[in-house]
């Protein structure tokens, strides 16, 4: 559904009056994302992950190569509106993306823009607010809600467009742990129930463990690509790109180095707990299991 060929994005920066510097943010990306997948994109600051996200929504156009979203070339301006309908985007700051002073009117904003008839707007707003569990706040003012709730409203606003893909551009970065969980749970449910493609851009490795695929970006290139078990099996490689594996992965790795036998892949704390539980009932070598 999303496919790119040698995607390049660069911009010019004036160093002095007549000298220009070309900065290459995306450096020949070749990606191929199938329908209904949950993709995470990680990378340290300046790796180009947000720039990539903005290409998916035609907010930025490639300066080289081609990107197709749902078969449409993003550099063709005739496609822009239908691409944006197809691929919604949730931004980082929850306050700065809410347009209206009433929750339900904000959810309706995109529908009003694309010219959906009034009766239809009401039906779709109600449905998408119910999907993210915010229906009882429909008449509230957004500034009284928590960050997680605001992001769920932003998701509802996109959902109402009936998109096939939702891009979350560091949407959890400004939230507290509770709010982060709210948002991640909401998009996981959309992915599994409605088969909406999720592209999650994040700093928090813990959020990526549920994804089908993880892209690790560095200096405008995708340097690692694979399922979480694969990506997190090589902690030293991640370190090279200034990334930390989730805590559970890290602990499991240390334990393995200490001589414990852990056969299952460990990604979350729950995995780790179940590994410990196995030790307790005597599946592994018990003698060293007490201290850790």
């Amino acid at each position: 559904m999303i496919k790119s060929e040698n995607l390049v994005y660069e911009y010019k920066r004036n160093i002095s009056d007549n000298k220009e510097d070309r900065i290459r943010v995306l450096d020949g990306l070749n990606i191929d994302i199938e329908d209904g997948q949950f993709i995470s994109i990680v990378g340290h600051n300046g790796s180009g992950k947000s720039t990539l996200a903005r290409h998916l929504n035609a907010l930025l156009m490639p300066t080289g190569g081609t990107l197709w979203v749902n078969g449409m070339d993003t550099s063709d301006e005739n496609n822009t509106l239908s691409i944006r309908q197809n691929t919604g985007m949730v931004f980082q700051n929850p306050d700065n993306q809410i347009v209206a002073s009433v929750v339900e009117e904000d959810v309706a904003f995109a529908l009003e823009n694309i010219g959906v008839p009034t009766d239809d707007i009401w039906r779709r707003v109600e449905k998408s607010l119910a999907t993210v569990g915010m229906i009882k706040y429909r008449e509230d003012a957004p500034n009284h809600l928590s960050g997680g709730q605001k992001q769920r409203i932003a998701i509802a606003g996109i959902l109402a467009m009936k998109p096939r893909c939702i891009v979350l551009d560091e949407s959890t970065a400004m939230l507290d742990p509770g709010g982060r969980k709210e948002v991640i749970d909401a998009v996981r449910e959309l992915n599994s129930k409605e088969h909406i493609n999720i592209i999650l851009i994040t700093h928090y490795m813990e959020e990526t463990i549920y994804s089908d695929r993880i892209f690790v970006m560095n200096r405008g290139r995708i340097v690692m690509d694979g399922p979480p078990e694969h990506i997190f099996s090589d902690i030293s490689m991640l370190k090279k790109y200034n990334l930390e594996a989730p805590q559970a992965v890290y602990i499991a790795d240390r334990l393995r180095k200490e001589g414990f036998v852990i056969n299952k892949p460990v990604l979350s704390m729950d995995d780790l707990v179940s590994v410990f539980a196995d030790y307790k009932i005597g599946v592994g070598n018990v003698d060293r299991g007490k201290k850790s």
Partner: peptide
């Protein structure tokens, strides 16, 4: 940017909730 991403393209062809 957020308005752009949500298909805002001026008042033409807009409907109202």
């Amino acid at each position: 940017l957020a308005m752009d991403a949500r298909c805002y393209h001026g008042g033409e062809g807009r409907t109202k909730m």
